[in-house]
Amino acid sequence: MSGLNTFQLLNGLTFAALLFIVASGFTLIFGLLRIVNLAHGALYLLGGYCAYALASTTGSFLVGILAAMAAVAVTGLILDQGLLRFVRGHELRQVLLTLGVGLVLNDMMLVLFGGDTYTVPAPEFLRGAVRFWGLFYPKYRLFVLALGIVIFILLWLLLNRTRLGALIRAGVDDPETIEAMGVNIRRIFLLTFMLGAALAGLGGAVGGAFLTLYPSADAEILVFSLAVVIIGGRGSLVGAAVGALMVGMLNTVGQVMFPEFAYFVIFGPMAAILAFRPLGLFGRTA
């Protein structure tokens, strides 16, 4: 790829790490609960605004991140218990309901924060750039890259090495049987939903510091997450990672080489993959 230098390559990677954080929450909810949460982008933005509000008042980035995750997890709890419980089992009605929730949340945030652009203040030690291989690169973006890798490892351990993870995986494959075995699958569903939402909140807090926050940021991140999950396949963590890498890199290639058609560069390959593997690269039939 002669048109890309190391700097742009790293930009693609860090964007991919952020996408992975957001899309992993999306794919967890999609995989286990069969809910396509179209409010996920709004949850991301909500997390971002929460982190902005708290980090700029308390001066602590960490407090901002934790508050964002908690606030969005609680929003997820309300969404699941307050609204989605009325349409359980109806795939289509669930999707369209979350779409409505996304519209309402987005509009409410517009009321609260207006149309201005905000940046979550990053802590002092992550500002500035580091020098390596003869190039300066922002520290913060490297932090996002590292965070993405950490989240991947943590989620992988959670899913593959813990009892909860075993229950979640079993729930993805066969919810009826696991329920018949005496497990309260509803509680696991709820936990997963809150975890997925919290990941969107984390993404918003972290992304809000380098992508900035503005009213239509939710739709943009939602579409990127959709692309990641469509490419990776429902409920697959590895799929989300591969999808995020592809989308992140394609986005960078698109923006550098064909700025006017950047979207096309992402979604063209996605559509092609879907034409051959309708369930995504790592997707399995339900």
Partner: peptide, 26 residues
Amino acid sequence: RTTGVYFILLTLALGMIIWGICLRWT
């Protein structure tokens, strides 16, 4: 080739391509 929610997701993404092009192809 897709059905159900996948059809919704894919058509949503396809529609967004058009939106992206209309926005950026100044």
